[in-house]
């Protein structure tokens, strides 16, 4: 890979210092599974300083904090997939990360990179959405926390400046008894770019009434999205087959509404409807 300068800080502070002192453009390098692939086409990083943040200890932790789980931006998909904490309290993310690429890719690529690359097909995004994820960003020492949807502007474009470093991703811990579901539709069983993902989080009380519900698609919209109107359709109800159908209709109707009518709509909209129906029926016990 061609670049103007390369540095490999060993602490977060050093990384921030490197970002401070770098002249002109900077590019962060994490696992490189997007970056190094991009580098093969043209010379995108020839004029940039590369700051290699892979393995910075501050970015590699998974911790519980109040109602949240804080996941370091440098945590790999494999680590997420294998984290007992995430599997229990945010299982949909573990399931999503398990579908990324192949073992070799998952062992090396990071959640921070998956977000910052902002591919609409990034597999973590829909799962992060239903977990109401927030992203912690450090800009030259100043820390802020932003909802995931505000980080990604459109395909392959974030709202981050080149001095912004994602340090952690916060996902809401789910209560015991919460059901998770992650579905990935690809053209093959591994190393497949998603055609569509569907992430679901569903919590019912003892009587079967829905307390919490989020369901959304990935690889479908220009950025991660949750739909309050759709999610509200089940809240407070003991959903019937009709309710399921209504959610399926409403969610799949978002595709032309938000993404516009494209050649893929004729495929994606009906598939989305059928799969939402199937997933909810399964979660709700064969409605």
């Amino acid at each position: 890979m061609e670049c103007r300068e390369y540095s490999k800080p060993t602490t977060l502070q050093e990384a921030i210092d490197a970002l401070k002192t770098a002249e002109d453009g900077v590019k962060l390098l994490a696992g490189g599974t997007d970056l190094l692939v991009n580098a093969r086409e043209g010379h995108p990083y020839r004029e940039l300083t590369i700051v290699d943040i892979y393995g910075l200890p501050e970015l590699c932790r998974i911790e519980e904090m109040d109602g949240w789980i804080a996941i370091g931006a440098g945590v790999t998909h494999t680590q997420i997939e294998q984290s007992a904490l995430i599997r229990e309290k945010a299982g949909v993310l573990a399931d999503a990360c398990r579908t990324v690429g192949s073992p070799q890719i998952r062992n090396h690529s990071t959640i921070g990179g998956n977000i910052a690359n902002a591919s609409p097909a990034a597999d973590s995004l829909a799962a992060l959405s239903v977990l109401e994820a927030e992203v912690e960003v450090n800009r030259l020492g100043e820390v802020r926390r932003v909802p995931l949807g505000d980080i990604i502007e459109k395909p392959y474009r974030t709202t981050l400046s080149d001095r912004d470093l994602i340090t952690r991703i916060f996902v809401k811990k789910a209560d015991a008894g919460t059901q998770f579901h992650f579905y990935k539709l690809g053209r093959r069983k591994a190393l497949a770019i998603s055609r569509m993902t569907i992430a679901t989080l569903l919590k019912r009380d003892g009587s079967g009434k829905v307390e919490r519900f989020h369901m959304t698609m990935g690889a479908t919209f220009p950025k991660p999205m949750l739909f309050e109107d759709v999610d509200n359709m089940l809240i407070g109800k003991r959903p019937t087959a009709k309710d399921i159908q209504a959610v399926a209709d409403a969610l799949s109707a978002k595709i032309p509404l938000i993404a516009g009518i494209r050649p893929s709509t004729a495929y994606k909209q009906p598939v989305c409807k059928k799969m939402v129906e199937r997933i909810l029926s399964e979660l709700l016990g064969g409605q």
């Binding site: 053209r187 093959r188 069983k189 591994a190 190393l191 497949a192 770019i193």
Partner: peptide
């Protein structure tokens, strides 16, 4: 390339 030209993987 093999990102886009899809040959079956060991899982398929």
């Amino acid at each position: 390339n093999f990102e886009d030209y899809l040959i079956p993987t060991v899982l398929d």
